[in-house]
Computed example of a mutant assay.
Amino acid sequence: MSLLAPLRRLSDGINQVAIVLSVACILAMLGISFTGFLYKLMTGSALSWTYSLARIFLPWIGFLSMTISLRYGEHVAMTLLVRSLPKALIKVAAAVCLAVIALFAIMLVWYGWGYFLNATQLYMISDNIQLSNRFTAIVVPVSGVIILFHLAHGFALLEHFVDEDEFIDEMIETTDMEEERS
Rank of each mutant, 00 (worst) to 15 (best):
G36R: 02
S52F: 10
I56L: 14
P86A: 09
R83G: 04
V109T: 13
G73H: 07
R71P: 00
V92K: 12
L70E: 09
F37K: 05
A102V: 10
L98Y: 08
I90P: 00
L38R: 06
F37Q: 06
M29H: 04
T67A: 04
M42Y: 12
L64G: 06
W110P: 02
L108C: 10
V100P: 00
S45V: 12
V109D: 03
L81I: 13
F104N: 07
H75S: 08
F63S: 01
I101C: 04
G62K: 00
V100N: 07
S52H: 08
A88Q: 04
Y72M: 04
I101L: 13
A77K: 02
A54Y: 03
A99E: 02
K91L: 05
A99N: 09
L58D: 00
A102M: 15
L30H: 02
S48I: 12
M107H: 14
A102W: 07
R71Q: 13
A94V: 04
G31R: 07
A99R: 01
L89W: 04
F63H: 08
K91T: 07
V100D: 00
V82A: 07
A88V: 05
A105N: 03
K87F: 13
C97E: 05
L108E: 08
L27Q: 00
G31T: 13
F57Q: 07
R55C: 08
R55W: 07
L27Y: 04
V100C: 13
S52W: 10
Y51K: 10
I32W: 02
L103E: 01
A102S: 13
M42D: 11
W60S: 03
R71M: 09
K40H: 15
I32V: 15
V96L: 11
G62F: 15
W60V: 03
Y51C: 06
A77G: 11
W60H: 06
V82K: 03
V100E: 03
V76P: 01
P86V: 08
A94E: 02
M29S: 13
F37T: 14
I90T: 00
K87T: 14
L64V: 08
W60M: 02
L41T: 14
G44S: 13
T35C: 05
T43G: 00
P86R: 08
L58Y: 09
S84V: 10
L89S: 05
R71L: 09
M107T: 15
R71H: 13
F57Y: 13
T35F: 03
L53Q: 05
V82D: 04
A77D: 07
G62T: 07
K40A: 11
M78C: 10
G62I: 10
L38K: 02
K87Y: 13
A93M: 11
T67S: 07
L41A: 10
V92C: 00
A28D: 05
T79V: 11
A77M: 15
L81S: 05
L85K: 01
L80Q: 12
A46S: 15
V92I: 14
L58S: 05
V109K: 09
S84F: 06
I90V: 02
